[in-house]
Simulated assay, not measured.
Amino acid sequence: PVRDGDFTIERREGVPYALLVLDYRCPGAAEAHEVRSGLFADSEGYVRDTKTIVTYDLDLRTGSTALDAEHRSFSTHQSWAERFWQFFRLGAEHLLTGIDHILFLLALVVGSRRLREIVLAATTFTLAHSVTFLLAAIGLVRAPASFVEPVIALSIALVAGWHLSRIRRRGSHATDLETGDRGRLGLDRAGSTRLAVVFCFGLVHGLGFASALGIDQAWSWTLLWSLLVFNMGIEAVQLAIIALVFPVLALLRRRQPVAGLWVTGAIAAGVALMGLVWFVQRVL
């Protein structure tokens, strides 16, 4: 490889990143190319894991893939299913290891009074963060981490605090729907307001997802496909968490209303406190 220009160092989510562009000359007569990522060897000991996003255009073959410590190489003859799984797995792992996004989702679950509410909230969150995630990842929208990260933390605290405020104002009737006309979505005024708040915060969370990949380049259909699959991995884990947690809380609320209120209130309080702590830390 030949270095193309100088290297730069920047910070993402409080971690220093080095950006180095390398130009490779590959044999033109090869039937396939194998690309390996060996920047940090296993014996190096300091860097525990790396994730490398690769977009390639070699010998009339285009595609993209994701490399990490367990998958250090790929062939340009890799199948569609292999490429799909690599980015799907990367998205799933990102949400599972991103405790702030999991807590935001948990705040949505405990604050939802009906199945309709959590489905609409999850769908709204998905649509909102998908828009900004894709726009930011391909370089069309940019927001500094100094703004995105504190707002994500604040969103966690506010969404969890919504449920706490209803418990404080309505007591044992916190999970009841308000009387009066409901909109086309079957939500009362409180549910509609919460949905609007979730959408706004979802836009910011999309910027956080894009920052995790660190992609900033011109429009590419190959890259867009990879980002969509990455997003599908995020959504699969999100739906799995909802499917596991919401039925348990719903059953508890139905069988033991008082206990259900205490449990959801305790969860919301813990999530809100964690969000506020993160907000102060990220602002400072």
Rank of each mutant, 00 (worst) to 15 (best):
D100G: 11
G28W: 07
W162F: 13
T50N: 09
A259G: 02
A29T: 03
F125D: 01
I242C: 12
E13Q: 14
S64T: 00
R254Q: 08
E31S: 14
E44G: 08
R255C: 00
G14M: 05
C200H: 03
D100W: 14
S130Q: 04
L223P: 01
T126N: 11
R48Y: 05
G5E: 05
W221F: 11
G265K: 05
L284Q: 06
I267V: 15
L22K: 06
A145G: 15
G14I: 01
V204N: 09
L19T: 10
I9F: 12
Q238D: 00
G91V: 00
L95P: 07
R166D: 13
T76C: 09
R189D: 06
A29V: 00
S165T: 00
L273T: 15
F88H: 11
R48D: 08
P16Q: 02
R61W: 04
G45I: 01
R194G: 09
V159A: 08
G98S: 13
S211R: 09
T124M: 14
A121G: 14
V141F: 13
A210S: 10
H94G: 14
Y46V: 13
A218G: 13
L251D: 00
L39I: 05
W80M: 05
A66Y: 06
S165K: 06
A272V: 06
L185T: 04
G111H: 06
L239N: 06
I118G: 09
I242E: 02
H173G: 08
A160R: 03
D49A: 12
V151Q: 08
L227S: 02
V237P: 09
H71L: 05
R36H: 11
G202N: 05
A250V: 00
Q86S: 15
A212Y: 03
T179L: 08
E70S: 15
L105R: 08
S146T: 13
V35F: 12
I152D: 05
P16N: 01
H94W: 10
L115W: 15
